[in-house]
Structures are given as structure tokens and as C-alpha cells.
Simulated assay, not measured.
Amino acid sequence: MPLTSFLWRMLALLLCLSAAGCSVLQPHTDPTRFYMLTSRPQAHDTAERGERKRWKVGLRPVDVPAYLRNKAMVVRTQVNEVTFADFDCWAGPLDQGIARTMKDALSSSSNVESVTLDSFGSDTLDYQIAIRILACEGVRAADGSSSIRFSMSWEVRSVAANSAVTKRGVFTAPSAPWDGKDYGQFAERISDAITGAGQALAAALPMKTTQ
């Protein structure tokens, strides 16, 4: 084969490889979207605030089951089957988002003076709250409908009484409809459920009037 022809063929091959390499290395837009839990402003019961004992509350780190620690949003499709959204994720650790939203909900109550996160007990606190998440996910039913599920167990301990359990219970939010596609709506519905849970916890604290 003449040298000139060989060189031309090698040049053509190099050009083809270069073109292919450029197409492979083209940047692609990441379609992943990130969502945050947000608290909604709550009305303060100012009329009775001066008559109530206001408690200093500590919120222990929220206990979240392993399957919810993935940043991807979770949808339950069967009793024992869940799917993880490919491109829809929480913007941060779910336990921290729940704790932050719960703090806002508790702080809006007229019988709560302050809320301390990641608390393990302190002489400056009146009560300590421990929360274990049981469900925090979307649900797709066999008939094609979708909804949001949120449930948690909780304990309230009196710090002044050597951490004795004062109250315990389970909160399950009313089932909220979800269109099954809009994950911004998903995050909004979960936020509302957590706010409702915070209000229930505040109601579990004594509503003792000052002397």
C-alpha cells in the first residue's frame, strides 16, 4: 500500500475516533430535582398565652427507618414493595428535615417557649420528646390512585422527674391525595402531615396555668 494512501486512511480513522469521542463526552443536563420540607405559618393562641405555663422542650434526633434514609423519595406500591424515585430526591437527610419542620410546628404552640434540636436532656429543659418515624412515603393503590402516608410513634419525658415517660402515643396523619407525579406536591403533603404531628405533640404537653 502506498505510504500516502496509508497516511490518508490513518487520518480518516483518527478523525472518526475524535468525532465519536466528542459525542460521548458531550455534557448532559442532570434531570434530578430536590425538594425540602417546609413548615406553614401557624396562628398563635395569644389570648391565652399569658395564662399558660410555657415549656422548654428538647427534641431528640428523629429515628428514621433504613429504607427512608436514601435521599430518593419513596413510593409504596405493594404491602411489602417500595420504589425509589429516579430523579426526585430530598434536598437533605430526611431526619433533619422532619426535625426542623417539627420544631417550627411545636414553637408555634402557645404552651411552648422554646425547642432545642438534637437534645439528650438538660437541666434547662422541662420536657424531652423522642420520635420514631413509621411511614413517610407516597402510596400507589391498585386502582391507580395515589396518596401520602405519614405515621410516627412518640414519647414525652419529664426532664425534671428523672426522665420518666410522661406520655406516649402514635400519630397517623389523615390520608392526603397526591397525583402520583408531582413530587413538589408530595413534599407539601408530607410537610402538612408533620405540622399536624407537631400540633398533636404540643397538645400532649400539660396546659398548666400559672399560679
Score class of each variant (00 low, 15 high):
Trp178Asp: 00
Gly180Leu: 10
Thr166Pro: 00
Arg168Tyr: 10
Ala160Cys: 07
Phe171Asp: 09
Arg189Lys: 15
Ala161Arg: 15
Val156Ala: 09
Thr166Cys: 06
Tyr183Pro: 02
Val159Ile: 14
Gln185Asp: 12
Ser175Pro: 03
Gly180Tyr: 10
Ser158Tyr: 01
Ser163Lys: 12
Ala176Trp: 01
Asn162Val: 03
Ala187His: 05
Arg168Ile: 01
Phe186Ala: 03
Ala176Ile: 08
Ala176Lys: 11
Arg157Ser: 12
Asp182Pro: 01
Ala176Gln: 13
Ala187Arg: 04
Val170Trp: 00
Val170Thr: 14
Ala160Asp: 13
Ala160Phe: 04
Ser158Asp: 14
Arg168Cys: 05
Asp182Thr: 02
Ala161Glu: 13
Thr172Trp: 00
Ser158Val: 04
Val170Tyr: 00
Pro174Val: 05
Tyr183Phe: 15
Val156Asn: 04
Ala161Gln: 14
Val165Gly: 00
Glu188Gln: 15
Ala173Met: 07
Ala161His: 14
Ala173Ile: 04
Gly180Ser: 09
Asp182Gln: 02
Ser158Glu: 13
Glu188Asp: 13
Val170Phe: 01
Pro174Glu: 05
Val165Pro: 04
Ala187Asp: 01
Ala187Tyr: 06
Thr166Asp: 12
Ala164Lys: 10
Ala187Met: 07
Arg157Ile: 00
Arg189Tyr: 05
Ser158Trp: 03
Asp182Val: 01
Val170Asn: 11
Val156Met: 11
Pro174Lys: 06
Tyr183Met: 03
Asp179Asn: 15
Ala160Ile: 07
Ser175Lys: 09
Arg168Phe: 10
Phe186Lys: 04
Ser175Asn: 08
Phe171Gly: 10
Lys167Asp: 09
Val170His: 06
Ala173Asn: 07
Phe171Asn: 06
Ala161Cys: 11
Val159Glu: 12
Asp179Arg: 08
Gly169Gln: 00
Gln185Tyr: 06
Arg189Ala: 11
Tyr183Cys: 04
Lys167Ala: 15
Asn162Glu: 13
Ala187Cys: 06
Gly184Glu: 12
Arg157His: 08
Asn162Lys: 14
Gly169Phe: 01
Ser158Lys: 08
Tyr183Ser: 05
Ala176Tyr: 03
Val159His: 01
Lys167Met: 09
Asn162Gln: 13
Asp179Phe: 09
Pro177Asp: 04
Trp178Phe: 11
Thr172Arg: 10
Val170Gln: 11
Lys181Thr: 12
Asn162Asp: 15
Val159Gln: 06
Thr172Tyr: 00
Phe186Trp: 10
Ser175Ala: 13
Val159Pro: 02
Gln185Met: 11
